[in-house]
Amino acid sequence: MENIKLIINFLGQLLPAINITLIVSVSSIILGSLLGLLLAAARLSESVVLRVLASVYVSVVRATPAIIMIFVVYYGMPMLFNDWFHTNIDGWNRMYFVIIALTVLFSAPVSEIMRSAYESIAKGQMEAGLMVGMTPFQTLYRIILPQAFVVALPNFANSVINLLKEGALTFTIGVVDMVAKAQMIVANNSGGYAWQTYCALALIYWVISLAIDKGVSQVEKSYQAKRKTIAV
């Protein structure tokens, strides 16, 4: 009972920092999806060079630990900008570095998800669309994408949850997010109530993940309902 009270108390102290987590996650999801779209297009393109480049990119990112990605971006980008553009970006908000790192991390799996969803739908549907006189773009936009969206949704949600969890490493380069906040609370208590604090932290992430899962299954259900009505 005592512990539950403590955890609730810590929840109240951690929650204000949630906006950092949300800003970082949402920006990375948006940017990462755009980059992922480009990558998917590259992997589906006619050009061998583009295809190879994109698949090398994806496989390297897939094998890179999040923390290494964050560190390399954080320490490497200022150096790169200094040498190439003679600009000093040391003063950037550190969140930007995390967002860039997470965007790269997110783009790889998302490009794969988009590609396989597209491939699972494209073939017959494109032919059918063309045969009823639609243009390729119309077929893509009106027929293939809506279907691919449904196919991709569960995996996309999975990647979003992974991104959210990787975002918890934001604190490693000194941004005060919820994890950093939790560590501060523990330090302020001279190391006391540590596990209660971290449980409160975990609880927040868990709730967000559950909410994402719930939202996705809701969307899926509504799509399935649509399908059924069409079928009947």
Binding site: I161, L164, E166, A168, V179, Q183, A194, Y198, W206
Partner: peptide, 12 residues
């Protein structure tokens, strides 16, 4: 476990 970051699991 799936819904929480590994860093939180480590800290706990």
């Amino acid at each position: 476990v799936r819904g929480t970051p590994i860093i939180a699991q480590i800290l706990i």
